[in-house]
């Protein structure tokens, strides 16, 4: 019973972590058809902003999330205008942007390494204690992250369905040419989507690093895992992505506890590969029809 609860709680923790990643990344796939490996840079950014805010300039915890939001926004804007825009202009965007975002990820990691050093820092924006249930501790941080996932999901859903920005993003993702004919500035709405993404990603960075520590490559694994979760769920299907995030989180933690922690990620990947062998478009994915 103990071990079951352990697995449940830690699965919940990593599941929420993957879910926030999947949430942010699916926005970019939906808008531009972009798989962003540089997500790790945004996570590290959020972590370092929280560290800077509370440990370096001793500001209140109150400022952490707004500051992370802002810095992610700015980063997203810069990233779009310096890199994505130009690569979008060339052919084969969806593959090229993966290469470019690997480069951005390495650049970001290197920058943080040079600015803040390589050692792991304690990120102060976190809850230290936890709730005790039959001898097993459920950290408040996990509960907090889980609640934040739900809040972020609701906010995203509201933005996408109600606001003009969401309407435009959906229009552009469904048919960029038709969107242009409606008078929509596609580049501007890409930039806006990128800024929205950046701010969400930086906030998730605060949450993720609160559960561990902050160091330059902190988001690397989480990024790759969130991406393969999106792929196995079928890209463009956010609800399936969130479900898969928790399912695979439980799988990974279960394997970790039962067989040793080095087998968690491999077994998760193995599961994904097996699913993709039978369903190349993902578990819940639709067949893509290319019209001639």
């Amino acid at each position: 019973m103990d071990i079951f609860l352990q697995i449940l709680f830690s699965g919940l923790a990593v599941g929420s972590m993957y879910a926030v990643g999947a949430l942010a990344l699916s926005l970019l796939w939906g808008t531009m058809g972009m798989l962003n490996l540089a997500h790790t840079t945004f996570i590290a950014l959020g972590g370092y902003v929280a560290y800077f805010c509370m440990s370096v300039i001793d500001a209140s915890w109150f400022f952490v999330l707004p500051l992370a939001f802002l810095s992610g926004l700015v980063m997203g804007y810069i990233y779009y205008h310096l890199v994505i825009r130009h690569i979008y202009a060339n052919q084969n965007f969806s593959v090229n942007i993966i290469i470019a975002s690997v480069a951005i990820a390495a650049l970001g990691e290197n920058t943080f390494l040079n600015l803040a050093g390589g050692e792991a820092l304690r990120q102060p924006f976190q809850f230290t204690s936890g709730l005790k249930i039959i001898g097993v501790v459920l950290p408040y941080q996990t509960i907090f992250t889980f609640i934040m996932v739900i809040i972020l999901m609701v906010i995203m859903a509201l933005i996408m369905s109600k606001s003009k920005l969401g309407q435009v993003i959906r229009a552009v993702s469904q048919n960029p040419d038709a969107a242009k004919l409606m008078g929509i500035n596609v580049q501007k709405s890409f930039a806006q989507a990128m800024m929205l993404y950046g701010s969400i990603a930086a906030i998730t960075g605060v949450l993720v690093t609160g559960a561990s520590q902050v160091f330059p490559s902190v988001g690397g694994d989480a990024t790759v895992k969130a991406l393969i979760i999106l792929i196995v769920a079928g890209l463009g299907n956010l609800r399936a992505g969130i479900f898969m995030a928790f399912a695979l989180g439980f799988l990974e933690m279960g394997v970790n506890y039962l067989f040793g922690s080095r087998y968690g990620f491999p077994s998760m990947l193995g599961f994904v590969i097996i699913v993709l062998l039978f369903k190349p478009n993902g578990f819940f994915g639709k067949e893509v029809v290319n019209r001639v």
Partner: peptide, 22 residues
């Protein structure tokens, strides 16, 4: 091989990472 282009990039990267971690 049956996956779409960007999927292949991510999956192969993940496989390489997992091998390194192992």
């Amino acid at each position: 091989i049956r996956l779409r282009g960007p999927y292949i990039a991510i999956m192969t990267l993940a496989i390489a990472i997992v091998i390194q971690k192992l």
